[in-house]
Write a protein that binds this DNA or RNA. Structure first.
Lengths: 249, 249
DNA sequence: CGAATCGTTCGGTATTGCCGAACGCTGGCG
DNA sequence: CGCCAGCGTTCGGCAATACCGAACGATTCG
């Protein structure tokens, strides 16, 4: 772990800060947050504006993320092999289950959504590609936790999203053991009231869980009366196995 | 236009190169492309890997874009005010026209797609947010060109995407004059065979065209026999006017 | 109308990161 | 089977580089 280039790392820190909220930030705010002189930050910001990673508000002078980042981010999707290989299977999964299909990969203590197929015959859904889901309160996240070889990504306190969110580390660990035992995970209204999700692991050629695929939908369709319809579990596991097979080639 | 920080600018150049194609690039390739010593690039790359903007292939040692960029890019969508204010109107436009709705903004000689609503009751479409459309061969692009105050973004040669693409600058300029005269643009199979698009400008509080909104669909639905159904034009212009009004507040 | 805070400028300084040569390694060609 | 060309990586010396802090207008808020 040699040394890194100071200014590039600082530039990245600025971008992360700007991305952490929808608010625009000023030089002084950033200086306080990062503990750096205003002049230093201004130089980096000027460069970031020049390359299009950051834009400056004409009237207030405050800074926000730039459009170039949107294009770079979408380029990442083309590069990501897991996503490229999974797209067709995710489409098929959404078609068979008639629910929205999701693919996620672990990233910085969250599940990063790298693909999302809308539920067929239902409009007005917003795309979630690029957003984070919590590891402990999503089916995708439980799968990734359960099969994480380093197995210590769970850092309490666990945030409660609904009253059914698992916030007790011991109970979560027990559920992860169950996930490992049966090869899939469920999440019952633990992230959003009325929504249920199922997920299964995607493995690479070496057997490592590099991602997870699953579906998400209304509790009354996927688990009426609280009982998960096992046909949906089959759909998800089939898709996960198919992608795993695909990646092994 | 003072000076910028060398290493940050170089880091951005690396990211742009990595984003320019789905291929992974090695240190030597980047060194040749940028005309810099390998050692210098390695230092920057090490830093970019450290902050997650770049990932390194375990087996080949080559570099590709990192997942953090996907998250930063999607954060840009939250920050972008044009998009935030337009989402509801785009949904409504897609609903009324029963076609896919698009919002674009000018960026680096292209149209950057910042929002995309799928056609209702039709699945298996891939989301185009973050991708580029050509300025001269898309309805969104023609609108942006026509209302561009700097008016010199058209740089020949104009690439032909289909046999109906306008590649003659003079003919394009004539069409742009027509767009300015009537307030909306059409694109008839100039980008993809069998597809037609309509777009109208979105203006900010100062009257500047900051973006465009439009729809895109099969020629047999939008313009059977080559004649554009004017009701679709009304839908698009209504949506554009509504957003413009919204932005002025 | 003043005071506080904003984003920006600027020049001295020593810290920073650039450079080029050398390293071990891999893969392919003869 | 062994050579060579190319890869990604390491390293240390040098000086160019980018950091810093104080000062400057502009703007906002009380």
């Amino acid at each position: 772990m040699g040394d890194t280039i100071q200014s590039v790392e600082r530039a990245a820190a600025i971008l992360r800060l700007l991305a952490s909220g929808p608010r625009q930030l000023g030089v002084a705010e950033l200086a306080r947050a990062l503990g750096l002189p205003k002049g230093t930050l201004h130089g980096i910001l000027r460069t970031l504006v020049h390359v299009g990673f950051v834009e400056q508000d004409d009237t207030t002078g405050k800074y926000r993320l730039g459009a170039t980042l949107l294009h770079l981010g979408s380029s990442y999707l083309d590069v990501n092999e897991l996503r490229t290989r999974s797209i067709n299977w995710a489409d098929a999964l959404a078609g068979r289950s008639r629910e929205s299909a999701w693919i996620g990969t672990p990233h910085e203590g969250h599940v990063l959504v790298i693909h999302h197929v809308f539920r067929p015959d239902d409009s007005m859904q917003t795309l979630q590609v690029g957003t984070y889901l919590p590891l402990h309160a999503s089916a995708l996240g439980k799968v990734l936790l359960a099969y994480d070889p380093y197995g210590e990504s769970i850092t309490p306190p666990l945030q409660a999203h609904t009253k059914r969110t698992l916030t007790d580390p011991a109970r979560l660990e027990a559920e992860l053991a169950q996930v490992r035992a049966r090869g899939w995970a469920a999440e019952m209204e633990e992230l959003t009231e009325g929504e249920v999700a199922i997920a299964a692991p995607i493995r690479d050629a070496r057997g490592l869980a590099v991602g997870a695929i699953g579906i998400r939908g209304a509790v009354e369709r996927l688990a009426p009366g609280g009982d998960l319809h096992m046909e949906f579990v089959s759909y998800v596991r089939d898709a996960a196995r198919a992608i795993t097979r695909d990646l092994a080639r």
